[in-house]
Design a protein around this nucleic acid. Structure first.
Lengths: 343, 343
DNA sequence: TTATTTTTTGATAGCGCTATCACAATTTTT
DNA sequence: AAAAATTGTGATAGCGCTATCAAAAAATAA
């Protein structure tokens, strides 16, 4: 009836205090909280009273240490450049994981470039089930996370790392190649590319797809602006005049995001340039905006919803390897072109 | 030279293993990791070799328990309804906290409505420094979080709770009131309101502001659509025809978000309704879109940047109460109307 | 040289909880 | 009724780490 262990006084109310107050052993209190059906009604009520009277709050950290059980917690490290299509991928992933009882923590590294050690420590201080690197391009951060690797890591959106368990690479280059080929097939020949956020791998992938398609069809690839500005409405509006000045013969303009294309559309309205008759415009991402703007934007998107679900499956398989690992068929993950009036 | 404690074998490599391998005590290894300057070069090198050879990874949970030190970690619980202006507030808050060395974890409750217990457990399992409830409206979740309160909680965006330390309430109602008064001052009389996301307190606040302004000027308040749909481009496009059908006399339409207003603008283009000559349109939030669309949107915004910084200050003061708590002047937190061509 | 201060080092004892197992209390079976 | 199975309960011993303090080693002063 008496734990004999000595205890320091940290001011915190512990299981032991509750047990003493209720006149039972600590284990009975522990059980009353975690598996109440294994404690008799009489004691359970007494314990509940003690908890209420003392205002006891469980210490989850101690519980984690003692039980060595992993939290059903998955951290997603990400930057803030995510455009619409990547955001859908992330949402789909979160929803799928939530269905299996996993909570997703999002950490935006944007704020912590100067304090990586702290980020790493934060990541590893919570008995995570896994870490997802979502379009993280900072190699220092990746290196440090992988170096302390004690759990499954999954890398989405940038080049593969052999030291990482799962690498998922949405093929933005292919999507842009398909879109560009579609534009060419429609008869356009003076096709420009407007790319922003040039510092990010994702956008260079899209640029690369355009480049491949143009070369494959023996078309010139010089009509291009590759800017370091954000891929936003404002940037689109701002850069259209520059494109038109440099290449007045332009008959189609492909933008690396729908937001850029939206800015371009607005600027066309302002200048009374008729889309698509004087200039065809395409976006990337199949955002909601692209569906309702005037004219609606032709755009392309990867099946982000499906990709998210598939990624969740892979991740859960990694966490619980007992699940059968029949290789899933990924051929359905092909980009989809949305044909609309802007072309 | 020898710890005598018995140890179970959990398969994990511990400080003890490293110490044994390096021929030193566990405390020396612990120090070599946390305060290397307090360990002699010779031992430090030996210990580093042991760590590398054995592939030792520190167990942060055990460290947290033993040292009882709080993680510099703040969790933000939020939903996904956040529109542009709330997003800026959140970013500003994160940036300010990051400057003081705090890492922000974002948890989107949207996915976890069915699993609140899990959410609470996730929250309390990481020795957080504080919890931020960011536009969380679900009373069950709030109640459960507050019930286990062991650390500072801050509530942003909805009505005050007396049991919560800090309540921050951006005055969206005032902002909308000011915007509506401005529209009235411009001579418009048949003013409608388009409100989406009616289920959220935030949007009802904005609606309420419009209502107050209209009543104060003895103008009718029946020209209103208060929909349960998302506050998006698509909803704006979809609902404009309904407004025009119901109230053909409409000369100004105020929307509760810039996105709704954007959808309305697009639908106006499609129907060749000239903005602002046939219909004036206003948004809410001063989003980037509102600045570059055609015509640019008149809109209103709260000083989200400042509010975020101020909130961070309050929060840090709560975490470290030793800082002097001179009441800060909040009168500068007034909404700003952005006058643009759509009105 | 010896006495004193400073720096390094490690054995010990928990942090608050849970796994384990043995023993008591109850229920079921023979 | 006694024997066997089931359930309820609590003392004990850690989980992997760090605070503490005393002892040892090194540096400085006398």
């Amino acid at each position: 009836m008496q734990d004999t262990k000595k205890r320091r006084n940290t001011g915190q109310i512990t299981l032991f205090d509750v047990a003493k107050y209720a006149g039972v052993g600590t284990m009975t209190v522990s059980r009353a909280l975690r598996t109440p059906e294994r404690v008799s009604d009489k004691l359970r009520k007494k314990i509940q009273t003690a908890i209420d009277d003392l205002g006891y709050k469980p210490n989850v950290v101690a519980s984690l240490l003692a039980s060595a059980s992993a939290n059903r917690l998955i951290a997603v490290v990400t930057t803030k450049i995510c455009d619409h299509s990547t955001r859908i991928l992330l949402n789909s992933l979160q929803t799928s994981l939530a269905k299996d009882g996993y909570t997703t923590l999002i950490i935006e590294t944007y704020h912590y470039h100067k304090n990586e050690a702290q980020l790493i420590n934060a990541l590893y201080s919570q008995n995570l089930a896994a870490i997802v690197l979502f379009y993280v391009e900072n190699p220092t951060i990746i290196e440090k996370i992988v170096h302390r690797k004690t759990l499954p890591i999954i890398n989405i959106g940038i080049q593969s790392y052999s030291c990482i368990n799962i690498n998922i690479q949405p093929d933005d280059s292919l999507a842009m190649l398909m879109l560009t080929e579609y534009v060419i097939k429609q008869g356009y020949r003076h096709i420009g590319l407007l790319c922003a956020n040039q510092q990010y791998h994702l956008f260079q992938q899209r640029l690369h797809g355009w480049h491949r398609a143009m070369l494959a069809h023996h078309l010139p690839t010089h009509r291009i602006i590759n800017a370091a500005k954000p891929a936003s409405f404002a940037t689109g509006s701002e850069l259209l005049p520059e494109m038109l000045l440099n290449w007045p013969e332009l008959d189609a303009l492909i933008c690396t995001t729908d937001e850029l294309a939206g800015g371009v559309l607005n600027e066309c309205h302002r200048r009374h340039i008729r889309v698509p008759y004087q200039l065809a415009v395409c976006g990337f991402g199949d955002s909601e905006f692209s569906q309702v703007c005037v004219p609606p934007l032709t755009t392309v998107a990867l099946p982000a919803e499906l990709m998210g679900q598939h990624t969740a499956t892979l991740l859960l398989k990694q966490i619980c390897p007992d699940i059968d690992d029949t290789e899933t068929d990924l051929s359905f993950l092909i980009p989809i072109i949305k044909t609309r009036a802007s072309l």
